Simulated scan of single mutants.
Amino acid sequence: MLIPHLHFNGNCKEAISLYEKAFNTKADSIIQNSDYAPEEYKNDNRIAHAVMPIHGQKVFFNDRFGKKDTSTDIAVHLIVMFKSEADLLSCYDIMKEGSTTIDPLETLPYSPLAVQFIDKFGVQWGFMVDPSGEG
């Protein structure tokens, strides 16, 4: 099983809230740092670990911990296949605020509607309509 894991910089709760609304889902579990290690992280409500199903795929979330200077230049691009243009537009309408468009809404040879953008949390998304309607 391959599970995408998204790391945020102190705004994981806000991202979870937006994604729950956009993808009409709920996080299965949310563990705050203070829940995980109460003595060490008293009053620290950053997210230590959360799990949310998005379009049938389990996705992990957290606020970045550990070495702050650790980074990577490898880009991760999450693709979501929708059953219909209406489903894509409904989700995109919620997530586009504060985002940066890479490729605008357009018809592609392999999808009736697609858009690529980086959301306000820095996560790169590609939304596409599955031409078979299976999404």
Rank of each mutant, 00 (worst) to 15 (best):
N45E: 08
L105N: 03
K42D: 11
A48P: 07
R64V: 08
K26N: 09
I54G: 05
D73I: 09
A48S: 06
S29L: 07
K96A: 05
I54E: 00
T101M: 00
A27P: 11
R64S: 14
K83P: 06
L105R: 01
G66V: 10
K13P: 03
P38Y: 08
F23K: 04
N62C: 13
M81D: 14
E40G: 14
K67M: 15
R64Y: 13
K68A: 14
M81K: 14
D28L: 14
N45K: 11
S99A: 15
V51I: 11
K58Y: 10
A50D: 08
H77P: 01
S90I: 03
G98A: 07
D93T: 12
I94W: 03
N33F: 14
V76A: 15
Y110D: 02
I74Q: 02
V80P: 06
M81Q: 15
D93Y: 06
P109T: 01
T100K: 09
I102N: 04
D73R: 14
A86L: 10
G66K: 00
N62Q: 12
S90F: 06
K58R: 13
F65R: 05
H77V: 06
K21D: 08
L105C: 06
R64M: 13
F65K: 05
K67A: 15
S17M: 09
S99L: 10
E39L: 13
Y36H: 13
K42R: 15
H49R: 03
G56M: 05
E85I: 02
N62A: 13
T72V: 02
S111D: 02
S111Q: 07
M95F: 08
L88K: 08
N24F: 09
L18N: 00
G56A: 11
V76M: 15
E39R: 12
Y41Q: 11
I54Y: 05
I30F: 03
E97S: 12
G66A: 05
N45I: 05
N24D: 14
A50F: 03
N45F: 14
F23E: 04
A27I: 04
S29W: 07
Y19L: 02
E85V: 06
P104E: 00
A86Q: 12
K13G: 09
I79W: 09
K21T: 13
K26E: 01
